[in-house]
Amino acid sequence: MHDKFVCDELLKHISEYVDGTLREDLCVQLEEHIHSCHNCEIVLNTLKKTIDLYQGTSDMERSLPDDVRSRLFARLDLDDFIEKS
């Protein structure tokens, strides 16, 4: 088991690391730690996967249903533009 302090430190930066916005020196520290701490490696990978899954499901989503769109245009008195999609 690794130093819990180090693992907790990692947790604080993990989100920015995933976004690619973490300061470079911290990135290096984090990557060094990950190499030697299997648990943190799993936390990092499952965090990335979590974000991927949410982005994946959102990409698969359909666009606005036609009936919802029609009612929106009608509500705004813009029925005459419904055809132009």
Binding site: V68, L72, F81, K84
Partner: peptide, 30 residues
């Protein structure tokens, strides 16, 4: 009005989706 309709078409999908995710039902999202 045409420009507003065009804008509405452009943003309605993400706004509907956001409402759907926050409230969890289609009626509220609409």
């Amino acid at each position: 009005r045409a420009e507003f309709a065009r804008m509405m078409d452009h943003f309605s999908t993400p706004i509907y989706r956001l409402g759907l995710k926050i409230l969890g039902n289609e009626q509220d999202a609409e």
